[in-house]
């Protein structure tokens, strides 16, 4: 069922707006990370599509967040560093071993990648369909 969900999710990415795609991906990921139905996001840096997005719950307090979405590591508050980190830039993803993955747009296409080591370290159970993108 979940496979079907993800397949529909990715197929729908072709037709849906970029913002919708991003919201779905992030929500699905955060639910897997937090095992909550309504996960709370902490946005660090300018996160396109998620700012002022009524489809997700955000917080200004990193401690309350289930998932940190960032586009830079510069001056990331310490209390955030131990939380599951997810980035919107591949280059940022490469810079920090703790970042569990990246979802970014390149050449007009959405791309997603997960770091296997970081996923395991944070004891995150990603739905099986995400495993294809795990490295």
């Amino acid at each position: 069922m979940k496979v079907l969900f993800l397949a529909i999710l990715l197929i729908s990415t072709v037709f849906a707006s970029d913002k919708d795609i991003a919201t779905k991906i992030y929500l699905s990921l955060a639910m897997d990370v937090s095992e909550k139905k309504d996960p709370i996001f902490y946005l660090y840096g300018h996160i396109k599509y998620l700012e002022n997005n009524s489809g997700i719950h955000t917080t200004h307090n990193c401690n309350k967040a289930d998932l940190i979405i960032l586009n830079t590591l510069e001056k990331l508050p310490k209390e955030c560093q131990n939380k599951p980190l997810f980035t919107t830039k591949y280059r940022t993803y490469l810079k920090h071993e703790n970042i569990i993955g990246a979802f970014f747009w390149q050449k007009g296409r959405p791309n997603i990648v997960f770091r296997k080591s970081s996923i395991e370290k944070n004891n995150i159970h990603l739905e099986s369909s995400f495993s294809k993108y795990t490295r």
């Binding site: 990715l10 990415t13 591949y90 490469l94 390149q106 993108y133």
Partner: peptide, 18 residues
């Protein structure tokens, strides 16, 4: 060949063809 950093794929970077 992309020069724009945002669009340029790095060597060995995975590519999701869609």
């Amino acid at each position: 060949t992309a020069l724009d950093e945002e669009e340029r794929g790095l060597f060995n970077q995975p590519f999701e063809p869609q």
